[in-house]
Design a protein around this nucleic acid. Structure first.
Lengths: 335, 335
DNA sequence: CTGAAAGCGCTAACAC
DNA sequence: GTGTTAGCGCTTTCAG
C-alpha cells in the first residue's frame, strides 16, 4: 500500500489537514511544523494521490493535448513546444491520439478522459462539429485548427488559405506553369484541406492564371508513401507539370521522392513547396521551401487562452488566426 | 455540474449499485433494468468519473507511455503502434515526456503521475538507475531500453550491439575503409549510445580491421542539425572518411545533409547506414540503409509483459532482447 | 495556527 | 436481481 496523507499526519502527530495545508503551500502553518512534515514526506516517500485530489477539487497540474496521430511529426513538434511552455509554470503535458480508430476517437474525446485534465488543447483535424459538440461546456478547452466548430470554444485557426496562397504564388512567380496540389480536395466544409485548396486556387486567380487540368491530386492519407506514388504517376502521365504544392511537409517529402522516381530533378524540372516547416525540412536535399505556421505563436496563445478559460469559465470565447510566412529554400528556383 | 451515477440511479428509480453493475457489465441485472439504465445514460449524457473509479478500484483503461522526447519520430511511431495494439483490447494510450527539463522529468516519473495509469511503459533513454528505482514496486511497469536498471522491472532490451555490428559490418563489406560513428561515445554504462558504439567496435574486430582515427563523432544531441555540422566538418578535415554509421536515422539524415554540404555524394563517396528504420528512411534520397528494430515485436511484447504484470504483480520479472535486422537501401553501395 | 466533520463519485462486500 | 453499508484519500468549511 502506498503512503497516504494520514500516514504522514500520524507520524508527525498532526491532523491530515495540516499536512494538506503544508503540501498546498497554505500560509497558516508554523515553520517548525512545516519542516517536520516536509521531512517526513521525504522519509516516508509520500506522494499525493491525484485521483483523490481531483475528486475533491480540480487542479492536477496536467494539461491534455489531443492530436489526430502520434506519428505525424508536426504534432510531435507541437507537443514538444507546448510541453516546454507548460513546464515553465510547473505543469505537465499528456498527449493522446484521437484518430486511431472510430472507437479510440470517441474514447479520447469522452468526457471521462478529458475530465482528468485541468484543461485540454484539442487539434480538431479529422474531427467534426458533432464530435466536439459533445464536450461538456464547462471543461476548459482550446481548439486548434479549422472546420466548422462550435463557436462556444476558444479556438486558434491557422491561416491556411493565406499560407497556401503564399506557397502557390511563390511557385508561379518562380516560373511554374502547372502547379499541382498534392493532397488537395474540397470536403465542403472548412477543413485544413479545403482551405489550403482554396489558397491554391486564390493564388491562380490573383495572377489571372488558369488552374492546371486535373491539378488536384487527392491522397488517401497525408503520408509520404501515397504522395510518392501519386506524384510519380502524375508526372509520368503529364510532363507539363512543373511544380508541386504539397499540403504538408510530409507529403512534400513523398512528392520529392516521387519526382525522382519519375526521373526528374528538384527544382530544375519540378519545384516543390511544403507546409509546416518541420525540423526535417531544412535537412532534406534540396532543403524544402515551405510555409512556417509559427508554432511558437500558436502554442503561446493556446496556453494563454486556456489559462484565461481555466480562470473564468464564463468568459466569451476567442477566435484567433495565427500568422504564416514563406520560408524560401532549395526546392524552388532563385528569382 | 456533470451528471453522476446517482443522477442516473434516481432517474431510473434504482440504486447507484445497479447503475454501476450495468456499466461494468456485471451479469446479475435484468435485461429490462439494464436497458432502461443504458437509455438514461445516453439521455442524460452521463460519463463515468475516472478519478472516483480509480480511487476506489483501479482500472482506468489507460496505459501510460513515457518517452524522452515528443519530437523524436522514433517515439511517435512507437506510440502509434502501441496505441493501435491497446485499442484492440479497449484500452487507451497517453504519452508523456520525461526529458524536457530536470523538473519535468521528475514530475513525469513521480508516482503521482504514473499512478493514474493501469500500467506504464517507460523508455529509459536518458534516465538512470536511481530515477527508476524510486518507482513504487507494485506499479505495473515495463522498461524499454538499455542501461543498468533495477532488475525488479520487466524490461525489453533492443539488441543495440548486434544492430550496430550489422550496420558497421555491412559498410566494411561494401568496401568502406574509414567508418566513422556519428553520435557515438562511451558513457561507461550500458546506454544505447555505449552499446551501439560497442557494436561498431566489434564489427571492426570481427574483421581484424583497425578503428579509424578519431572515428567517433560525439554529438550533443541526436539531432539533424548537430549531426550535419559535425559530419561536414569531419569530412572537410579528413578526406579518408568514406562511410558514416549514424546512431539514429535522424542523425543519418543530418549526416547525409552534411556529406552534401562537404561537396560529396552518397553513396559514391561516402556510404551511410542509420538505425531505427523510420518511415522517413524509405523516402529520403537516396533511400536510407538502416537497422530495423522490429518495433512491432517490441510493442507486442511490451503489452504482453505489462498485462502479465497487471495480472500478477508478484511474478518474476522478465528481460527480453528484441531482434534487429539490416534493411539494405540506397545509401550503401551494391555488393 | 490547527483540527473535526463532511463528502467528492464510485465500487467491494455482503445482505436481502 | 437489487439495495445497503462503508470507505478509497483528499480538500472544503468552519470551529476552535
Amino acid at each position: 500500500m502506498a503512503t497516504t496523507m494520514s500516514d504522514v499526519a500520524r507520524a508527525a502527530g498532526v491532523s491530515v489537514m495540516t499536512v494538506s495545508n503544508v503540501l498546498n503551500g497554505k500560509p497558516r502553518v508554523s515553520a517548525a511544523t512545516r519542516q517536520r512534515i516536509l521531512d517526513l514526506v521525504d522519509e516516508l516517500g509520500y506522494e499525493i494521490n491525484l485521483s483523490a485530489r481531483r475528486l475533491r477539487s480540480d487542479r492536477t497540474g496536467s494539461i491534455g493535448l489531443i492530436v489526430p496521430r502520434f506519428d505525424h511529426p508536426y504534432f510531435g513538434e507541437l507537443a514538444a513546444q507546448l510541453s516546454r511552455l507548460l513546464a515553465a509554470t510547473g505543469r505537465h503535458l499528456a498527449v493522446e491520439q484521437s484518430d486511431a480508430s472510430k472507437e479510440a476517437e470517441l474514447a479520447a474525446l469522452s468526457m471521462a478522459r478529458l475530465q482528468t485534465y485541468d484543461g485540454v488543447i484539442l487539434s480538431v483535424v479529422g474531427l467534426d462539429h458533432d464530435d466536439i459538440d459533445r464536450i461538456r461546456p464547462s471543461l476548459p478547452v482550446v481548439l486548434l485548427g479549422e472546420q466548422n466548430m462550435p463557436r462556444r470554444f476558444d479556438q486558434i485557426h491557422m491561416d491556411n488559405v493565406e499560407g497556401a496562397r503564399l506557397a502557390t504564388a511563390h511557385l508561379l512567380e518562380r516560373g511554374a506553369r502547372h502547379v499541382v496540389l498534392a493532397g488537395g480536395g474540397d470536403e465542403g466544409h472548412a477543413s485544413m484541406m479545403t482551405l489550403r485548396t482554396r489558397g491554391w486556387r486564390a493564388a491562380h486567380e490573383d495572377r489571372g492564371a488558369a488552374l492546371p487540368p486535373a491539378g488536384i491530386l487527392t491522397l488517401e492519407e497525408f503520408e509520404m508513401d501515397c504522395a510518392r506514388v501519386r506524384v510519380r504517376d502524375r508526372l509520368r502521365d503529364d510532363p507539363s507539370v512543373d511544380a508541386v504544392f504539397a499540403i504538408t511537409d510530409q507529403v512534400a517529402v513523398g512528392a520529392m521522392a516521387g519526382i525522382r522516381d519519375a526521373g526528374l530533378r528538384v527544382p530544375q524540372d519540378v519545384q516543390v513547396v511544403g507546409f509546416d516547416n518541420l525540423a526535417l525540412a531544412r535537412h532534406v536535399t534540396p532543403a524544402l521551401t515551405t510555409i512556417d505556421p509559427e508554432n511558437a505563436w500558436i502554442v503561446e496563445q493556446a496556453v494563454a487562452l486556456l489559462d484565461r478559460r481555466i480562470d473564468d469559465r464564463e468568459k466569451d470565447p476567442e477566435h484567433l488566426v495565427s500568422p504564416v510566412r514563406l520560408v524560401e529554400r532549395g526546392t524552388t528556383r532563385p528569382r
